[in-house]
Design a binder for these strands. Structure first.
Ligand SMILES: [Zn+2]
Ligand SMILES: [Zn+2]
Ligand SMILES: [Zn+2]
Ligand SMILES: [Zn+2]
Lengths: 127, 127
DNA sequence: GCTATATTTGCGAACGGTTCTCAAAATCAT
DNA sequence: ATGATTTTGAGAACCGTTCGCAAATATAGC
């Protein structure tokens, strides 16, 4: 029988992710667990993050240095505006891009089936 | 005195990049140099690629695995459509995004100062 | 050409994030 | 509680990238 065990490490990692509206690296999450003396290993952090991503509960992105970072995020198609100051992430609907995408095919014969977009700047509170 | 030396390794690496309209990793470029028995080291490949990027002659992107890849590319602002089959890259002007960007500020107070976009699909010849 | 000086190179070691291995620990059904 | 199954922690292994440094190369001046 194939079962999923509900464990303390998984709860703790999911909880950290759920309370942050920013992308966090495995190392950052591990640090917080250490401060809380949770006794959770870095390996488990990696495994759990990957698991959350597969379940569609989180997204990941690579930061400038190529380090993987994770964010609790709905699976519906949308994009992110990331604040350069506080790191805060805002969801942004797709709309316009879809239309733009269509013209790619009409004008160049490029059959679009996916895209990634990220916006950068300063959020409302960071001016 | 600060000078730039024109060397064979640099010419060879720039030449490989110039003839490929796809993103190439340092390892791929190194392989080609090995086949040509150019006797160029991997370190030099890394250093030269970084140098070309700084000069604005090439762009880089991280592939799915986080590996850095490079493409000879004009510095003017535009985006890329990448073919999932052949890896070919087509330049795509920005246009619509700029307009969309403006609404981000008007509607949410997000002060946009940059964005990254990548399109994926199949190019004209890959159907 | 040759020499002197500054730059670049190759090699190998070091680095950092991620993945893997595997025995011990935790979870769950009975 | 017992046993089958899943998960975990610790550390080694992995892999792309960066570094350190002596040897090689490119340029400027002669
Ligand atoms: Zn989101
Ligand atoms: Zn902010
Ligand atoms: Zn381009
Ligand atoms: Zn193609």
């Amino acid at each position: 029988m194939r079962h999923e065990y509900a464990t303390k490490p998984r709860e703790q990692i999911a909880a950290i992710l759920a309370t942050e509206r920013r992308y966090l690296s495995a190392a950052e999450i591990f640090e917080r667990l250490e401060k809380a003396e949770a006794g959770v290993s870095l390996s488990t952090v990696y495994r759990t993050l990957e698991r959350l991503r597969e379940k569609g509960v989180a997204t990941s992105r690579l930061d400038e240095r190529g380090e993987a970072t994770y964010l609790a995020c709905e699976p519906s198609h949308h994009h992110h505006a990331i604040c350069r100051v506080c790191g805060g992430v805002e969801d942004v609907p797709c709309e316009a891009i879809e239309r733009f995408a269509r013209s790619l095919h009409d004008e160049r014969g490029f059959m679009l089936d996916g895209h990634t977009i990220e916006f950068f700047g300063r959020c409302k509170s960071c001016g």
